[in-house]
Design a protein around this nucleic acid. Structure first.
Lengths: 351, 351
DNA sequence: TTGAAAGCGTTACCAG
DNA sequence: CTGGTAACGCTTTCAA
């Protein structure tokens, strides 16, 4: 049998409490005794206080659960996600807390729900999970603090929210294109619902778009361009490849749009790939905008809507772990900014 | 106070065990009683069995800890890491297990060590952590099953190992270049130790390289080219930007090497960026090879050493969670293959 | 099909 | 500075 605190206590001839103190409160006992206990523990092969037992007793798991969609491609392949996660990791670490990754399977929602129910955590951070996913219900059942990256009007209970104003942010990009004379634009969304086909999509209103972020950003475009004249393309995934494939759908048309607004930089970078592959010049023959302003965007000269990804993650962690009481502190709107680069330019005159 | 199993049991007028069964063994009681219990639980606001308590009692944490270096850039920004992680996630999920991310801070090793000591997990997966890191000692103290992605001769205890033969894999790339007539080559390593300066590095033997993977791959190069004639460049980070900056160091020399062997694809892609930025043609003016064969490599026409990243992760998870007994099953060598693309070509004749 | 009892390994409190 | 006592919330025999 594995040695426990008791084993060590017996060996040294002290009580459990003292051994416990030797590990968790070094100042509560003489250095001498502490050393004796620690070395006895080593000799006995005691692995240190059992974290599970400690958690139970302390009433603190020492970790937060991170729910994120696996989508068609793995979420972390988006640099934006990586940055968000880094911010989250930093603040979580400062609170001596870990991150339990809970990938949301799209094929087996029940498995994910079970994972959520069994997660040894003190709270959850939800990131890009479709609102209909079974695991979200399971999460609410846990009645733990929750932070989301979506600022929603239908504020669910007391979820903490940290995010950006999606519509105006995207509208800024749309307005930029409009000012450049563009009138015929396409919007690239990532819709990662299972079994969605990539390709053009015809919906009467942005409201019909399933994912919150896609939907809101589409609304932003609709604020500037009449929705009926906008071409909506579903990339069915959030990756560079998916973006390229989706862009191909409109680039190869006889009457191609003069601009493409992508809902993420990875999609936009893919669109640029497709543009280049056809020998077209971005910013001249066709304009492309992205969203997030990831490092690659700068390198590629991509006009993009910048959002503070790292801070978003850091704040999410901070708010979740400090669990502020005042509602004002539980909803943070972060600023965005349109960064104009070479990928956008005046609309070419139609032939 | 929060309701517990007992609260529900009292309310319904049954024993704790019955309520427990209602959740964990639905077949052990009548549907009727079960429904009564579950609805009472809902009314009382009972959040379901406490995962921590359950873990303690069952002796199973239901998660594995993933140790990875944060390096200078966040580890997941390497597509290779993402693929590995995806494989790991898949097999871990199949075992109804979660993944607890434990980033290894380079600036505060003790914090990481504490995180490892407190992690509620059943085992660890170590991925790209420098061997001297304090957290590894903390991990061994836990005496839990461990899987590494390095096949080492100094086989540490009974760690499970799944990896590739690093030297021969890299030697294949070197041999390919040698056959093309290259004699003056540079090697790009990622060495992410804290406070390392990027730039050329002069070491008497690959043995002096700190990171296992860098070291072994350098050895592979040394099997083909006399080490004294190889230029070693430290990118001090594993990112595209770091690769570009590192490559610049040799590209701007009067006598630049005719080929660059990068220890990862992201570094190689960065090198290609640097090559292109100087108006040089990869595969003609200078050859570049990568390692991993991530999707971007194909897109960029990069010659690379392919390794089965996803399977590596999947196998790591599998072996860790099944915890096979026989030593033969605890060490898996995965195949690699050199994929030749346009980024390598005959060595240009020296002017 | 249900219930009673016995822990799982720790930490917190309070007395000495 | 040290030790006894009482939880923490659950699962698991085993017997009824």
């Amino acid at each position: 049998m594995r040695p426990t605190l008791q084993t060590v206590a017996d060996a040294v001839g002290v009580s459990r409490s003292t051994v416990s103190n030797a590990y968790s409160r070094p100042d509560q006992l003489s250095t001498d005794l502490r050393d004796r206990i620690l070395s006895a523990a080593r000799d006995l092969g005691y692995a240190g206080p059992n974290p599970t037992a400690r958690s139970l007793r302390r009433g603190r798991a020492g970790a937060i659960g991170v729910l994120f969609t696996t989508g068609l491609s793995y979420a972390f392949s988006d640099p934006y996600a990586v940055q968000f996660l880094r911010g989250l990791a930093e603040s979580v670490e400062r609170h001596d807390t870990g991150m339990l990754l809970i990938p949301m399977s799209n094929t087996d929602e029940e498995a994910s729900a079970r994972a959520v129910a069994d997660a040894v955590v003190d709270g959850f951070c939800v990131y890009c999970v479709p609102e209909w996913h079974a695991s979200l219900a399971a999460m609410r059942d846990r009645q733990l603090p929750v932070v989301t990256t979506e600022i929603r009007d239908d504020h669910r209970g007391d979820e903490i929210q940290v995010g950006i104003a999606e519509r105006p942010a995207m509208a800024a990009a749309a307005r930029h294109l409009h000012a450049l004379g563009h009138r015929d634009v396409a919007v690239l969304i990532a819709d990662m619902a299972p079994a969605t086909a990539a390709g053009p999509l015809r919906v009467d209103s942005p409201d019909a778009i399933r994912y919150y972020v896609d939907r809101e950003r589409a609304h932003g475009v609709a604020e500037v361009f009449p929705w009926a004249e906008v071409t909506l393309i579903n990339a069915a995934g959030n990756s560079r490849g998916a973006g390229a494939a989706a862009a191909a759908h409109v680039l190869d048309r006889a009457e191609r749009p003069t601009a493409i607004l992508a809902c993420s930089d990875v999609l936009a970078l893919g669109a640029l790939d497709a543009v280049a592959a056809r020998g077209l010049r971005a910013g001249a023959d066709i304009s492309v905008t992205g969203f997030d302003d990831v490092p690659e965007a700068a390198r590629a000269g991509l006009t993009s809507v910048r959002q503070p990804s790292v801070s978003k993650g850091a704040l999410a962690g901070e708010l979740l772990l400090e669990n502020k009481r005042e509602t004002a502190d539980r909803r943070v709107l972060l600023p965005t900014e349109l960064i104009v680069r070479a990928s956008t330019g005046p609309a070419p005159s139609r032939s």
